[in-house]
Design a protein around this nucleic acid. Structure first.
Length: 822
RNA sequence: GCCCGGAUGGUGGAACUGGUAGACACAAGGGACUUAAAAUCCCUCGGCCGUAAGGCUGUGCGGGUUCGACUCCCGCUCCGGGCACCA
């Protein structure tokens, strides 16, 4: 289908006018209410995809709407420009990551501009720009000073072929996503952000973020994974050093029949010589097994007796200590007391190795017999066989037993989290250098702030192996210690790219500020972000990191907010043929092609119309054509009557029935669309309301008794204003056609007139026993008694009530009458 | 396994706080205009019965509450997402 009006000319024209008028430039004005609207910035991968189009369209509608409502709107755009794909592309195409990245930025920027998004491009930033990452390095150093950054040796995903660490998400079923070779676990030194120092505040914030989807908050809470319980020390036979375990069920401690520790647990080094080989072999096997296992696979419970025994401090029982494949060194203390009767994993393990099962909790219903149990009972109940604690309810016993352990000095209440510190070291080239120098005398020393930025050298040759050139670039890593002057080695790892995206929203408030990461005055005016919009795939990573970083920047005195994003909208995916668009499936829809064929307004309109924002959107080319036809009808209607409409002045003194009908529909539509915009971003219903209004308008205009020109003009103007945030180019064009000389982008949102919106006549539904039987027309001021009388007198209703007794009549004012008969 | 969502015509989706189910579109079918096509315009469009008027039925399934249930409650089924030996 060819475009039905000259979209190319119209859209280019208005994009140019907006640019000339500079109408999306944001300037802080203390006396005006601000609105900071932000969409997640893109990675410059090459071209924008429909997911971007949808995300940025939703954001643009809100930004334009808020402007029309009188807010001082900040709506910036930039580029999440560091990342591994640039390195891969550079190797593949024999270019430089920077060149590839900046080419992509230029191309994608043109694409975004062609869609008519109302960004303040003056604030554009790219995170690979030294003027951006120098401030990130400064924040890193301040965090280092405060102990919020530290280095430690840890296990990472390493690809031999690519000579690099892979992020968890780059490990596909145990193999490298790029070369398909198995990933190996490797101990490496790396830098960590102490996000766990903020774990309680991050968790508490989840209860206060009223503007976030509950789903995202739940995911964050789960990720943080707070467990309340107790830490208990068990003496180990023949050793001074106790074995410390963490449990959430101290109430079951009398039921412990053995102990399980992670295969890597240090206590195993103390195993008797005759068991040591077997224990070490088991640890090695488990490591391999975990390596090979698919992530979702639950391995059968296996273990090996260490030869060691622990003493239950409550019972004095001698408990064999097993190395077990299901115990994780990274969680809790890497050791657990095993209560097979009341923990499913321990139960399975006990059955597999023929270990005793001791019941210490009896449920309210029934009675547990160890021999008869086929699974553990993990629910609450009453303690039995638990010494002085017998007879207590399990919840009460948790506290009592913990208190007792504390009094006796072998335990205490303890809280454990699933959240780990954030490992930010990447053995990649295309990232922000970590501003550290490793000195043989002084250890890790921060680069002095006056020496920032530590520039990422650009005169490097990319190594086809994927190995970062920084590791072998003497000019980069050879340096001297800033503290003692000794020859030293510069850190050659770069930062995780999630660091850049953790604070970019704050930088937008003054991206050129050269006195620090954030201009305090601008930040004080604009922050926090009032509305943030992006994909739900960032529910944990980016959104949690950004929350963490906000608190860090606050504690460094750089920001004065606690949370970065007041309201969050997670938009659904764009699907084609029921599946996510992908090259391999061949179901990719190219935004450029769509824009060229139908124009930006049509693409925007369809993205908004096809589904509410939070739901997945099925792309449908026929539907796009339909959206285009709607715009074309409006265009034709206005241009055909342009002279009449442009000449029309104030409303006539006496309105005809058609005038009143159109105005009623018009003002009802303004009310409806305003409510949709304010309440829940349901643009799809807002658009359908405007479509109804257009149908009413064109229908009346073509009738024998058309509305007057002035009323038509009022309707057209309102339609244009209501659609302006969604399809801004066409609305500007038609706004001008009506004779306006100012931009609709700078116009005010229309007000609705309740008087004009009021119905002159209401349709009341009449039911008999809840079934629709008739409709009656009444005037809005008819009394309930009168409505009831009219309903009962209605012919059709009489038919259904004849010969029956009317038991009850329910009148819902303005809605319906239900006659109950029997 | 646990935690969230969701299920409405051929399709995408509407339905306020329990009050006309299917708005608005798309597709399909029929018609008008045209030499023809495109574009445009008009009509039909959940299912069953009926020439019609109208009736019955219908929001994943089974119960319940209510004058009245897509909406609330209880019990399931299926689909999507997140987490997952987390002690």
């Amino acid at each position: 289908m060819a475009p039905l009006y000259d979209v190319e000319t119209i859209e280019r024209k208005w994009q140019e006018r907006w640019r000339q008028a500079d109408c999306f430039r944001a300037v802080a004005q203390a006396d005006r209410p601000k609105y900071y609207l932000l969409e997640m910035f893109p990675y410059p991968s090459g071209r924008i995809h429909m997911g971007h189009v949808r995300n940025y369209t939703i954001g643009d509608v809100m930004a334009r709407y808020k402007r029309m409502r009188g807010y001082n709107v900040l709506h910036p755009m930039g580029w999440d420009a560091f990342g591994l794909p640039a390195e891969n592309a550079a190797i593949k195409h024999s270019t430089h990551p920077a060149a590839w990245t900046y080419d992509n930025i230029a191309y994608m920027k043109r694409q975004l501009q062609r869609l008519g998004f109302s960004y303040d491009w003056r604030r554009e930033l790219a995170t690979c720009d030294p003027d951006y990452y120098r401030w990130e390095q400064l924040v890193f150093l301040r965090m280092f000073e405060k102990g919020l950054v530290y280095q430690k040796e840890t296990t990472v995903n390493w690809c031999e072929k690519c000579q690099t660490v892979l992020a968890n998400e780059q490990v596909i079923e145990g193999t490298c996503w790029r070369c398909d070779r198995p990933v190996v676990a490797r101990k490496m030194n790396g830098w960590f952000f102490r996000i766990t120092a903020y774990v309680e505040e991050l968790l508490a914030g989840c209860d206060r973020l009223k503007g976030w989807p509950e789903k995202v908050l739940t995911m964050q809470r789960n990720w943080i994974g707070k467990s309340v319980g107790a830490e208990i020390r068990f003496a180990v036979e023949g050793s001074d050093e106790p074995l410390t375990i963490f449990t959430t069920r101290p109430d079951t401690i009398f039921g412990a029949t053995f102990m399980s520790v992670a295969p890597e647990h240090p206590i195993l080094d103390r195993a008797p010589a005759e068991r040591l080989d077997e224990v070490r072999r088991f640890a090695a096997e488990t490591r391999d097994e975990r390596q090979r296992a698919k992530p979702e696979e639950e391995l059968p419970k296996r273990g090996v007796f260490s030869g060691l025994f622990a003493i239950n401090p409550f019972t004095g029982d001698r408990l064999p200590i097993f190395a077990a494949n299901f115990v994780l060194m990274e969680y809790g203390t890497g050791a657990v007391m095993a209560v097979p009767a009341h923990d499913q994993r321990d139960f399975e393990f006990a059955r597999a190795y023929d270990l005793p099962v001791k019941v210490v909790i009896q449920p309210a219903e029934g009675r547990l017999e160890p021999a008869a149990m086929t699974e553990a009972y993990e629910g609450p109940g009453v303690l039995v066989d638990s010494g002085a604690f017998s007879g207590m309810a399990s919840e009460e016993a948790k506290k009592a037993i913990t208190r007792y352990a504390e009094e006796q000095g072998f335990g205490r209440a303890q809280v454990t989290y699933r959240l780990r510190d954030w490992g930010i070291s990447r053995q990649r080239y295309w990232g922000a250098p970590i501003p550290i120098v490793h000195c043989p005398n002084c250890g890790a020393v921060g680069v002095p702030e006056e020496d920032l930025p530590v520039r990422l050298p650009t005169d490097v040759q990319m190594d086809p192996s994927g190995k970062s050139p920084l590791h072998s670039l003497k000019a980069f890593y050879q340096t001297v210690c800033p503290r003692c002057g000794a020859a030293a080695r510069r850190e050659t790892d770069t930062m995780d790219t999630f660091v850049e995206s953790s604070w970019y929203f704050a930088r937008y408030t003054d991206p050129a500020y050269d006195q620090g990461p954030v201009n305090p005055e601008e930040a004080a005016y604009w922050l926090p972000v009032d509305q943030y919009i992006g994909g739900v795939e960032h529910a944990i990573l980016h959104l949690l990191y950004a929350r963490f970083f906000t608190k860090v920047l606050r504690d460094l005195g750089l920001l004065s907010i606690d949370e970065p994003f007041t309201n969050l909208l997670t938009q659904g995916m764009v699907l084609k043929d029921g599946a996510k668009m992908s090259k391999s499936k061949g179901n990719v829809v190219d935004p450029d092609e769509m824009v060229q064929r139908y124009g930006a307004d049509t693409v925007r309109l369809f993205s908004l119309f096809a589904a509410p924002p939070e739901r997945d959107l099925e792309w449908n080319n026929e539907g796009v054509a339909g959206a285009h036809r709607f715009l074309a009808r409006l265009y034709t209607f206005v241009t055909e009557q342009q002279d009449r409409l442009a000449a029309a002045r104030s409303l006539p003194e006496r309105l005809t029935a058609a005038d009143r009908q159109l105005r009623r529909k018009l003002h009802q539509t303004i009310r409806k669309v305003t409510a949709d915009m304010e309440a829940d971003f349901h643009f799809n219903t807002a658009i359908s309301a405007v479509m109804e209004l257009c149908n009413t308008m064109t229908g009346l205009a073509a009738s024998d008794t058309p509305p007057s020109a002035a009323v038509l003009r009022e309707a057209v103007e309102a339609i244009l204003l209501l659609l302006a945030p969604m399809t801004p180019h066409l609305c500007e064009e038609l706004w001008q056609a009506l004779g306006h000389t100012t931009l609709i982008a700078e116009a005010s949102w229309p007000a609705f007139d309740p008087e004009a919106a009021r119905e002159e006549e209401l349709t009341i539904v009449v039911q008999v026993n809840g079934k629709l039987r008739s409709r009656i027309q009444i005037s809005p001021d008819t009394s309930a008694q009168e409505v009831e009388r009219m309903a009962l007198a209605d012919d059709k209703i009489q038919k259904f009530t004849a010969g029956k007794t009317v038991r009850k009549v329910i009148v819902v004012p303005g809605k319906l009458v239900n006659v109950v008969v029997s």
